Computed example of a mutant assay.
Amino acid sequence: MRSDFRRSKIMCLCLCLTCGLCFSSCGETGSGAAQKRHSSDSQTTTTVTVSAPAENSPENVGTQADHLGIKDDIRALFGHERKSTTTTTTFTTTTTNAAEYEKELRSMYTLTMDDNFVVTRSGSIGDDLIWKITFNGQTVLERNAESELTFKYDWYGAGDYTITLTSFISGEYRPVSNTVEYTISLKDTRVSPNEESILKLKKSLKSICSRSYSFDSDADDTVYLEKRMGVICDPNHDGYMESIVFYAGTSNSGSNIQQVYCSDRDIFLPDSYDDSLTYYVWFDADTKQDYLCKVTVSGSETTAKDAFTDDILWSKSNKNGCTLFGKQVSAEELENLGFYENALTFNTDTEPDNDNVWVSRNNKPSFEGMYS
Protein backbone atom coordinates (compact mmCIF):
# COMPACT_ATOMS: atom_id res chain seq x y z
CA MET A 1 0.00 0.00 0.00
CA ARG A 2 2.77 2.44 0.90
CA SER A 3 4.65 1.77 -2.37
CA ASP A 4 1.43 2.41 -4.31
CA PHE A 5 1.00 5.67 -2.46
CA ARG A 6 4.55 6.74 -3.24
CA ARG A 7 4.11 5.95 -6.92
CA SER A 8 0.88 7.96 -6.91
CA LYS A 9 2.62 10.93 -5.39
CA ILE A 10 5.44 10.79 -7.90
CA MET A 11 2.94 10.69 -10.76
CA CYS A 12 1.02 13.62 -9.25
CA LEU A 13 4.17 15.68 -8.78
CA CYS A 14 5.29 14.95 -12.33
CA LEU A 15 1.93 16.12 -13.62
CA CYS A 16 2.21 19.32 -11.58
CA LEU A 17 5.73 19.92 -12.86
CA THR A 18 4.51 19.41 -16.42
CA CYS A 19 1.62 21.83 -15.86
CA GLY A 20 4.04 24.40 -14.43
CA LEU A 21 6.24 24.11 -17.50
CA CYS A 22 3.29 24.48 -19.87
CA PHE A 23 1.53 27.33 -18.12
CA SER A 24 4.73 29.35 -17.77
CA SER A 25 5.27 29.23 -21.55
CA CYS A 26 8.72 27.66 -21.02
CA GLY A 27 10.94 30.69 -20.94
CA GLU A 28 11.62 33.54 -18.62
CA THR A 29 15.31 34.33 -18.67
CA GLY A 30 17.82 35.43 -21.21
CA SER A 31 20.36 38.06 -22.05
CA GLY A 32 20.49 41.10 -24.24
CA ALA A 33 21.46 44.72 -24.47
CA ALA A 34 18.95 47.54 -24.26
CA GLN A 35 18.64 50.00 -27.05
CA LYS A 36 15.86 51.74 -25.15
CA ARG A 37 14.18 51.18 -21.81
CA HIS A 38 11.76 53.25 -19.78
CA SER A 39 8.77 53.02 -17.48
CA SER A 40 5.73 54.80 -18.82
CA ASP A 41 3.63 56.90 -16.48
CA SER A 42 -0.09 56.50 -15.97
CA GLN A 43 -0.62 57.79 -19.53
CA THR A 44 0.66 54.52 -20.93
CA THR A 45 1.62 54.09 -24.55
CA THR A 46 -0.53 50.94 -24.76
CA THR A 47 -4.07 51.82 -25.87
CA VAL A 48 -6.66 50.32 -23.52
CA THR A 49 -10.39 50.99 -23.74
CA VAL A 50 -12.32 50.78 -20.49
CA SER A 51 -15.80 51.80 -19.48
CA ALA A 52 -16.40 54.05 -16.53
CA PRO A 53 -18.34 52.35 -13.71
CA ALA A 54 -22.09 52.61 -14.12
CA GLU A 55 -24.75 51.81 -11.55
CA ASN A 56 -26.38 48.38 -12.02
CA SER A 57 -24.30 47.67 -15.14
CA PRO A 58 -24.01 43.93 -15.89
CA GLU A 59 -20.61 42.24 -15.76
CA ASN A 60 -19.12 41.48 -19.16
CA VAL A 61 -17.22 38.22 -18.64
CA GLY A 62 -15.18 37.78 -21.82
CA THR A 63 -12.88 35.14 -23.26
CA GLN A 64 -10.19 35.71 -20.62
CA ALA A 65 -12.65 34.86 -17.85
CA ASP A 66 -13.81 31.82 -19.81
CA HIS A 67 -10.18 30.74 -20.14
CA LEU A 68 -9.79 31.09 -16.40
CA GLY A 69 -12.84 28.88 -15.96
CA ILE A 70 -11.22 26.15 -18.03
CA LYS A 71 -8.09 26.37 -15.89
CA ASP A 72 -10.35 26.18 -12.84
CA ASP A 73 -11.78 22.86 -14.04
CA ILE A 74 -8.25 21.53 -14.61
CA ARG A 75 -7.20 22.62 -11.11
CA ALA A 76 -10.20 20.82 -9.62
CA LEU A 77 -9.39 17.67 -11.60
CA PHE A 78 -6.02 17.43 -9.83
CA GLY A 79 -7.42 18.28 -6.41
CA HIS A 80 -6.56 21.97 -6.43
CA GLU A 81 -8.77 24.53 -4.76
CA ARG A 82 -10.98 26.26 -7.31
CA LYS A 83 -10.42 29.89 -8.15
CA SER A 84 -13.82 31.32 -8.96
CA THR A 85 -14.09 33.31 -12.16
CA THR A 86 -16.28 35.80 -10.29
CA THR A 87 -13.51 36.74 -7.88
CA THR A 88 -12.64 40.37 -8.48
CA THR A 89 -10.17 42.89 -7.13
CA THR A 90 -11.91 45.47 -4.95
CA PHE A 91 -11.50 49.00 -6.28
CA THR A 92 -13.42 52.10 -5.21
CA THR A 93 -13.73 55.18 -7.38
CA THR A 94 -15.91 58.29 -7.51
CA THR A 95 -15.20 59.31 -11.09
CA THR A 96 -17.48 58.57 -14.03
CA ASN A 97 -14.88 59.68 -16.58
CA ALA A 98 -13.35 56.72 -18.44
CA ALA A 99 -9.89 58.28 -18.77
CA GLU A 100 -9.74 59.25 -15.10
CA TYR A 101 -10.98 55.79 -14.14
CA GLU A 102 -8.19 54.11 -16.10
CA LYS A 103 -5.64 56.48 -14.58
CA GLU A 104 -6.81 55.59 -11.07
CA LEU A 105 -6.62 51.87 -11.86
CA ARG A 106 -3.09 52.20 -13.19
CA SER A 107 -1.97 53.85 -9.96
CA MET A 108 -2.79 50.74 -7.89
CA TYR A 109 0.60 49.08 -8.54
CA THR A 110 4.02 50.27 -9.69
CA LEU A 111 6.45 48.44 -11.96
CA THR A 112 10.19 49.18 -12.05
CA MET A 113 12.94 47.52 -14.10
CA ASP A 114 16.69 47.21 -13.53
CA ASP A 115 19.56 47.09 -16.04
CA ASN A 116 19.13 43.31 -16.36
CA PHE A 117 15.49 43.68 -17.53
CA VAL A 118 14.16 42.30 -14.24
CA VAL A 119 10.77 43.84 -13.47
CA THR A 120 9.78 44.31 -9.83
CA ARG A 121 6.21 45.01 -8.78
CA SER A 122 4.80 46.71 -5.72
CA GLY A 123 2.20 44.99 -3.55
CA SER A 124 2.41 41.69 -1.71
CA ILE A 125 2.58 37.97 -2.33
CA GLY A 126 -0.98 36.72 -2.78
CA ASP A 127 -2.31 39.71 -4.71
CA ASP A 128 -4.65 38.64 -7.51
CA LEU A 129 -2.58 39.87 -10.45
CA ILE A 130 -1.50 38.83 -13.94
CA TRP A 131 1.70 39.72 -15.81
CA LYS A 132 0.71 40.73 -19.35
CA ILE A 133 3.59 40.65 -21.85
CA THR A 134 3.55 41.88 -25.43
CA PHE A 135 6.22 41.33 -28.08
CA ASN A 136 6.27 43.66 -31.08
CA GLY A 137 2.73 44.74 -30.26
CA GLN A 138 1.25 41.25 -29.85
CA THR A 139 0.28 39.66 -26.52
CA VAL A 140 2.50 36.60 -26.02
CA LEU A 141 1.91 35.67 -22.37
CA GLU A 142 -0.46 36.31 -19.49
CA ARG A 143 1.07 34.75 -16.38
CA ASN A 144 -0.14 34.57 -12.78
CA ALA A 145 1.82 37.09 -10.66
CA GLU A 146 0.30 36.04 -7.33
CA SER A 147 3.34 34.14 -6.05
CA GLU A 148 6.15 36.38 -7.33
CA LEU A 149 7.29 39.97 -7.01
CA THR A 150 9.86 39.88 -9.83
CA PHE A 151 9.68 38.78 -13.44
CA LYS A 152 11.89 38.73 -16.53
CA TYR A 153 10.83 37.95 -20.07
CA ASP A 154 12.75 38.01 -23.34
CA TRP A 155 11.89 34.56 -24.64
CA TYR A 156 11.32 35.77 -28.20
CA GLY A 157 14.80 37.28 -28.53
CA ALA A 158 15.45 40.63 -30.19
CA GLY A 159 12.43 42.93 -30.38
CA ASP A 160 10.19 45.33 -28.45
CA TYR A 161 8.53 44.22 -25.23
CA THR A 162 6.01 45.65 -22.77
CA ILE A 163 4.98 44.33 -19.34
CA THR A 164 1.84 45.42 -17.48
CA LEU A 165 -0.04 44.12 -14.45
CA THR A 166 -3.74 43.36 -14.91
CA SER A 167 -6.47 42.29 -12.49
CA PHE A 168 -10.10 41.15 -12.78
CA ILE A 169 -12.20 44.26 -12.06
CA SER A 170 -15.83 44.96 -12.97
CA GLY A 171 -16.21 41.89 -15.15
CA GLU A 172 -12.97 42.03 -17.14
CA TYR A 173 -9.18 42.09 -16.84
CA ARG A 174 -7.98 45.69 -16.64
CA PRO A 175 -4.49 47.25 -16.40
CA VAL A 176 -3.68 48.16 -12.77
CA SER A 177 -0.09 49.40 -13.15
CA ASN A 178 2.15 51.49 -15.34
CA THR A 179 3.67 49.74 -18.36
CA VAL A 180 7.41 49.12 -18.70
CA GLU A 181 8.81 49.04 -22.21
CA TYR A 182 12.16 47.76 -23.39
CA THR A 183 13.96 46.60 -26.51
CA ILE A 184 16.24 43.57 -26.71
CA SER A 185 18.95 43.75 -29.37
CA LEU A 186 21.19 40.95 -30.57
CA LYS A 187 24.52 40.93 -28.81
CA ASP A 188 27.24 38.38 -28.21
CA THR A 189 27.21 37.88 -24.44
CA ARG A 190 29.99 35.55 -23.39
CA VAL A 191 29.62 33.80 -20.04
CA SER A 192 31.43 30.80 -18.62
CA PRO A 193 29.83 27.37 -19.20
CA ASN A 194 29.23 27.08 -15.46
CA GLU A 195 27.41 30.42 -15.28
CA GLU A 196 25.39 29.57 -18.37
CA SER A 197 24.33 26.33 -16.68
CA ILE A 198 23.26 28.24 -13.56
CA LEU A 199 21.17 30.66 -15.63
CA LYS A 200 19.40 27.75 -17.36
CA LEU A 201 18.70 26.07 -14.02
CA LYS A 202 17.28 29.31 -12.62
CA LYS A 203 15.03 29.48 -15.65
CA SER A 204 13.74 25.95 -15.04
CA LEU A 205 13.17 26.68 -11.34
CA LYS A 206 10.78 29.50 -12.24
CA SER A 207 8.81 27.05 -14.36
CA ILE A 208 8.22 24.48 -11.61
CA CYS A 209 4.75 24.43 -10.06
CA SER A 210 4.61 26.22 -6.74
CA ARG A 211 2.11 23.72 -5.36
CA SER A 212 1.46 19.99 -5.53
CA TYR A 213 -0.95 17.59 -3.90
CA SER A 214 -0.67 14.00 -2.79
CA PHE A 215 -2.93 11.59 -0.98
CA ASP A 216 -1.98 9.14 1.77
CA SER A 217 -4.11 6.10 0.99
CA ASP A 218 -3.15 4.42 4.29
CA ALA A 219 -4.47 7.20 6.50
CA ASP A 220 -6.94 8.63 3.96
CA ASP A 221 -5.30 11.95 4.74
CA THR A 222 -4.97 14.78 2.21
CA VAL A 223 -1.49 16.30 2.07
CA TYR A 224 -0.87 19.84 0.86
CA LEU A 225 2.66 20.68 -0.30
CA GLU A 226 4.07 24.01 -1.45
CA LYS A 227 7.33 24.92 -3.13
CA ARG A 228 9.52 26.62 -0.51
CA MET A 229 12.94 27.21 -2.09
CA GLY A 230 15.25 26.17 -4.90
CA VAL A 231 18.95 25.34 -4.56
CA ILE A 232 21.51 25.04 -7.37
CA CYS A 233 24.54 22.88 -6.58
CA ASP A 234 26.35 19.63 -7.52
CA PRO A 235 24.98 17.05 -5.05
CA ASN A 236 26.06 13.93 -6.96
CA HIS A 237 29.61 15.22 -7.59
CA ASP A 238 29.62 14.69 -11.34
CA GLY A 239 30.86 18.17 -12.17
CA TYR A 240 27.46 19.43 -13.35
CA MET A 241 25.19 21.72 -11.41
CA GLU A 242 21.68 20.46 -10.64
CA SER A 243 18.54 22.09 -9.29
CA ILE A 244 17.06 20.89 -6.01
CA VAL A 245 13.57 21.97 -4.98
CA PHE A 246 12.25 21.77 -1.43
CA TYR A 247 8.52 21.26 -0.96
CA ALA A 248 6.93 21.31 2.48
CA GLY A 249 3.52 21.42 4.06
CA THR A 250 1.12 19.75 6.43
CA SER A 251 -1.56 17.11 6.22
CA ASN A 252 -5.11 17.54 7.46
CA SER A 253 -4.14 15.57 10.55
CA GLY A 254 -1.34 18.06 11.32
CA SER A 255 1.75 16.08 10.26
CA ASN A 256 4.69 18.12 8.97
CA ILE A 257 5.92 16.87 5.60
CA GLN A 258 9.07 17.67 3.63
CA GLN A 259 9.58 16.54 0.02
CA VAL A 260 12.70 17.01 -2.12
CA TYR A 261 13.00 16.96 -5.89
CA CYS A 262 16.34 16.85 -7.73
CA SER A 263 16.58 17.50 -11.47
CA ASP A 264 19.01 14.60 -12.01
CA ARG A 265 18.58 11.54 -9.83
CA ASP A 266 17.88 7.85 -10.28
CA ILE A 267 16.86 7.03 -6.73
CA PHE A 268 13.66 7.55 -4.78
CA LEU A 269 13.88 10.08 -1.94
CA PRO A 270 11.34 9.21 0.76
CA ASP A 271 9.27 12.06 2.16
CA SER A 272 9.88 13.27 5.68
CA TYR A 273 6.68 12.86 7.70
CA ASP A 274 8.06 13.99 11.06
CA ASP A 275 11.17 15.41 12.71
CA SER A 276 13.01 12.06 12.56
CA LEU A 277 14.11 12.74 8.96
CA THR A 278 15.07 16.12 7.52
CA TYR A 279 16.78 16.90 4.20
CA TYR A 280 19.63 19.42 4.03
CA VAL A 281 21.92 20.71 1.31
CA TRP A 282 25.39 20.87 2.84
CA PHE A 283 28.13 23.03 1.31
CA ASP A 284 31.47 21.65 2.56
CA ALA A 285 34.35 23.98 1.73
CA ASP A 286 36.89 21.51 3.21
CA THR A 287 36.13 18.65 0.81
CA LYS A 288 34.93 21.13 -1.86
CA GLN A 289 31.75 19.11 -2.30
CA ASP A 290 28.04 19.77 -2.09
CA TYR A 291 25.88 17.11 -0.48
CA LEU A 292 22.17 16.42 -0.39
CA CYS A 293 21.88 14.96 3.09
CA LYS A 294 19.15 13.13 4.91
CA VAL A 295 19.61 13.72 8.62
CA THR A 296 17.87 11.25 10.94
CA VAL A 297 17.43 11.53 14.67
CA SER A 298 16.80 8.49 16.87
CA GLY A 299 17.02 9.11 20.58
CA SER A 300 20.45 10.58 21.32
CA GLU A 301 21.88 9.53 17.94
CA THR A 302 22.02 11.85 14.93
CA THR A 303 23.21 10.60 11.54
CA ALA A 304 23.76 12.49 8.28
CA LYS A 305 23.83 10.35 5.14
CA ASP A 306 24.48 11.16 1.50
CA ALA A 307 21.02 10.93 -0.09
CA PHE A 308 22.51 9.54 -3.32
CA THR A 309 24.90 6.91 -1.97
CA ASP A 310 23.51 6.32 1.54
CA ASP A 311 27.07 6.67 2.88
CA ILE A 312 27.32 8.06 6.40
CA LEU A 313 28.85 11.55 6.24
CA TRP A 314 28.90 12.11 9.99
CA SER A 315 27.23 10.78 13.11
CA LYS A 316 26.91 11.76 16.75
CA SER A 317 25.89 9.40 19.55
CA ASN A 318 26.19 9.31 23.33
CA LYS A 319 26.97 5.61 23.04
CA ASN A 320 29.26 5.40 20.01
CA GLY A 321 30.81 8.87 19.98
CA CYS A 322 31.28 10.88 16.78
CA THR A 323 32.38 9.97 13.28
CA LEU A 324 33.25 12.09 10.26
CA PHE A 325 33.61 10.49 6.81
CA GLY A 326 34.07 7.08 8.42
CA LYS A 327 36.70 8.14 10.97
CA GLN A 328 36.27 8.50 14.71
CA VAL A 329 36.54 12.14 15.80
CA SER A 330 36.02 14.08 18.99
CA ALA A 331 32.82 15.98 19.71
CA GLU A 332 34.82 19.21 19.39
CA GLU A 333 36.12 18.24 15.94
CA LEU A 334 32.59 17.49 14.79
CA GLU A 335 31.37 20.77 16.22
CA ASN A 336 34.10 22.64 14.34
CA LEU A 337 32.71 21.16 11.12
CA GLY A 338 29.98 23.80 11.32
CA PHE A 339 27.42 21.61 9.56
CA TYR A 340 24.38 23.61 10.59
CA GLU A 341 26.10 26.89 9.69
CA ASN A 342 26.85 25.66 6.15
CA ALA A 343 23.74 23.57 5.48
CA LEU A 344 20.27 24.69 4.37
CA THR A 345 16.88 23.15 4.91
CA PHE A 346 13.37 24.38 4.12
CA ASN A 347 10.25 23.12 5.87
CA THR A 348 6.77 24.21 6.92
CA ASP A 349 8.23 27.15 8.86
CA THR A 350 9.91 28.53 5.71
CA GLU A 351 8.09 31.19 3.71
CA PRO A 352 7.75 30.20 0.03
CA ASP A 353 10.13 32.18 -2.18
CA ASN A 354 9.84 32.12 -5.97
CA ASP A 355 11.96 35.23 -6.50
CA ASN A 356 15.27 34.00 -5.05
CA VAL A 357 17.47 30.91 -5.09
CA TRP A 358 20.51 29.58 -3.22
CA VAL A 359 23.54 28.86 -5.44
CA SER A 360 26.74 27.00 -4.59
CA ARG A 361 29.62 29.41 -5.15
CA ASN A 362 32.91 27.61 -4.44
CA ASN A 363 30.92 25.28 -2.17
CA LYS A 364 29.52 28.18 -0.17
CA PRO A 365 25.82 29.14 -0.23
CA SER A 366 25.02 32.37 -2.09
CA PHE A 367 21.50 33.86 -1.83
CA GLU A 368 20.70 35.36 -5.21
CA GLY A 369 17.82 36.83 -7.17
CA MET A 370 16.26 34.35 -9.56
CA TYR A 371 17.37 36.50 -12.51
CA SER A 372 20.78 37.71 -11.34
Rank of each mutant, 00 (worst) to 15 (best):
R2V: 09
S3L: 06
M11R: 15
C12D: 15
L17I: 14
C19D: 14
L21E: 04
L21C: 10
C26A: 08
T29L: 09
G32H: 06
K36I: 06
S39P: 04
D41F: 07
S42P: 00
Q43A: 08
V50L: 12
A52K: 05
A54Y: 08
E55G: 00
N56L: 12
N60R: 14
V61K: 04
A65Q: 15
A76E: 00
F78R: 14
E81G: 00
E81K: 00
E81S: 06
K83Y: 09
T88F: 03
T89Y: 14
F91M: 05
E100H: 08
E104I: 02
E104C: 02
E104Y: 05
T112A: 12
M113L: 13
V118R: 09
V118M: 08
G123F: 07
S124Y: 09
I125L: 14
K132T: 09
K132F: 05
G137V: 03
T139Q: 15
T139L: 08
R143T: 03
N144W: 05
E148C: 14
Y156G: 00
G157I: 07
G159V: 04
G159D: 04
I163W: 00
T164N: 06
T166Q: 14
G171V: 09
G171A: 09
P175C: 04
V176T: 08
I184R: 12
D188C: 09
R190L: 06
V191D: 10
N194F: 01
L201C: 06
S204P: 01
K206V: 03
S207R: 14
R211A: 12
A219W: 07
A219Y: 10
K227G: 05
R228L: 06
M229N: 02
I232L: 14
N236Q: 13
N236V: 02
G239I: 10
E242P: 02
S243R: 13
V245C: 12
F246N: 00
N252I: 07
S255D: 10
N256S: 15
I257W: 08
Q258M: 08
Q259L: 11
V260K: 01
Y261D: 08
R265E: 01
I267V: 15
L269N: 06
P270Y: 12
Y273N: 01
Y280P: 04
V281L: 11
D284G: 07
D286L: 10
T287M: 06
K288A: 11
Q289M: 14
V295H: 03
D311H: 07
I312G: 02
I312V: 15
L313C: 04
W314L: 06
S315R: 08
K316N: 06
S317W: 11
G326N: 06
K327S: 11
Q328F: 07
S330D: 15
E332I: 10
N336W: 02
L337Q: 11
F339P: 03
A343L: 07
T345N: 14
T345W: 05
F346H: 13
D349R: 04
T350Y: 13
D353P: 02
V357N: 02
V357W: 03
V359S: 02
